[in-house]
């Protein structure tokens, strides 16, 4: 797309189209995830990082916000948002005040320690604490 001379491409070519393609490539490079981690945000490039950071801070964004933040047309922004939904960056939620769809960042479950060993250790700990509690109750009655 960089080789075509100015104004020679299809009607929707130009810098906007380049940015759009860049965003598509960046998002497609991510695996399909069930939500993201905050650290993922720090790995993104501008303008995607800025827009998603703002989505976290403002708690949600609508399509026109994305279009503005990403400097894209509404149609392009919609495709990007669809891609973000697909890759687990966003979730769409209850419609806003005037019937607009709101997009929120979709977070992976917190708790980094999900390995089997961790589960066994905390499981044992939980059992022991439970038994301790029962003993305390027994002693009380």
């Amino acid at each position: 797309m960089n080789s075509s001379p100015p104004n020679a491409g299809p009607p929707n070519s130009g810098p906007e189209q380049d940015l759009f393609q860049q965003l598509v490539q960046e998002i497609d490079a991510w695996p399909m995830q069930e939500g993201i981690r905050t650290t993922d945000l720090t790995l993104l490039n501008e303008p995607l990082r800025g827009v998603l950071n703002a989505t976290v801070r403002e708690s949600f964004m609508t399509l026109p916000h994305f279009a503005e933040g990403l400097n894209l047309t509404l149609e392009q922004a919609e495709q990007i948002v669809d891609l973000l939904l697909e890759h687990g960056f966003l979730r769409s939620s209850e419609t806003g005040k005037n019937g607009e769809t709101e997009y929120r960042v979709r977070y992976a479950r917190a708790g980094r320690n999900t390995g089997e060993l961790w589960q066994r250790v905390t499981g044992k700990l939980d059992d022991r604490l439970h038994r301790l509690e029962l003993n305390v109750d027994d002693n009380k009655s």
Binding site: G35, V56, S59, R91, R104, V105, R106, Y107, A108, R109, A110, G111, N113, T114, W118, Q119, T122, G123, L125, D126, L129, H130, E133
Partner: peptide
């Protein structure tokens, strides 16, 4: 309560709830 702390460490939680809760 130690059991509550262990449970959170064990099960994790939905971080989206934190965001929603603050707002």
């Amino acid at each position: 309560k130690s059991r509550d702390i262990v449970r959170i460490l064990r099960e994790g939680y939905d971080m989206g709830l934190l965001n929603d809760g603050f707002q």
